[in-house]
Amino acid sequence: MSEKEIKNHGTGQSLSLEEIFEQRIARDEKIEPKDWMPEKYRKTHIRQISQHAHSEIIGMLPEGNWITRAPSLRRKVALLAKVQDEAGHGLYLYSACETLGISREELYEQLHTGKAKYSSIFNYPTITWADMGAIGWLVDGAAIINQVPLCSTSYGPYARAMIRVCKEESFHQRQGYEIMITLANGTPEQKEMAQDALNRWWWPSLMMLGPTDAESVHTAQSMKWKLKRKTNDELRQQFIDQTVPQAELIGLTIPDPDLKWNEEKGSYDFGEIDWDEFWQVVKGHGPCNKERMAARVNAWEKGEWVRDAAMAYAKKQEDKKLKKAI
């Protein structure tokens, strides 16, 4: 509809394009790539979807660290498949993001120059095999809680990508928890290794669900556009409530002395999160920020000749075909 038609539409009340757009979202209609959208909607979506894609791509690095050292073939094929899924998820998300009119090269450029962020959790090191268990169980667990509501978000290509991601994600969490169960039931050293991994990954996993509602600058707008269906604090509470019994079941202790069941609210109370640490890592001062970014940029730059060669080969094949046709 043109702007003029919109003004004459229905009650004679004139609605702006933006008001019509907001009404469509309120009615749960999906927005598709060629539909009119406010510039802020486009920008916010590019920011969130690309940040999500970058997280999948960088997220492969801490786990890739253990593929060659997995303790058995069973563990190795599972970890390999998980990391391959993460590459796939990154690609689904990049392609959804590109429908908003930004190119893959621009997206990579934003990642490589630090203009775009990725999830801070991947700036922590993976120092023992138990970290593969803790990442699957906690990091993927928190990611699932974040991602499930996005399957019904307002932007069509993002929602469709998320449906595919969520379907594949639950194996990730199960394989992680299974590693933790096995270690927790193993020798005292193995159990200790599992506990140590839980100690190191617990707090960063809670931070992964984002700043507190009071600090979160994007929440209100994101709720309106269904980019978010629950606030960060609600998601965090949900994560804690579902994870604590899983730790107890396998005899591991959550590293929070203030953690206590609150009968009245029917959920757990928990201790203060160290937000200074969170912001330090976001700002680039985490234990592995530099290492992650260097690995990523290195892979991209060192791969340039391969990408060029593939294009040269494609052109040669195309030219051959043309010659034959003549």
Partner: peptide, 23 residues
Amino acid sequence: FGSIHAADAEMALENARDVYTRR
């Protein structure tokens, strides 16, 4: 199903297989 980047049609098929039909 979505989109992918590839240098030519053959590579596009291969990449599509890896990205969209893992299960």
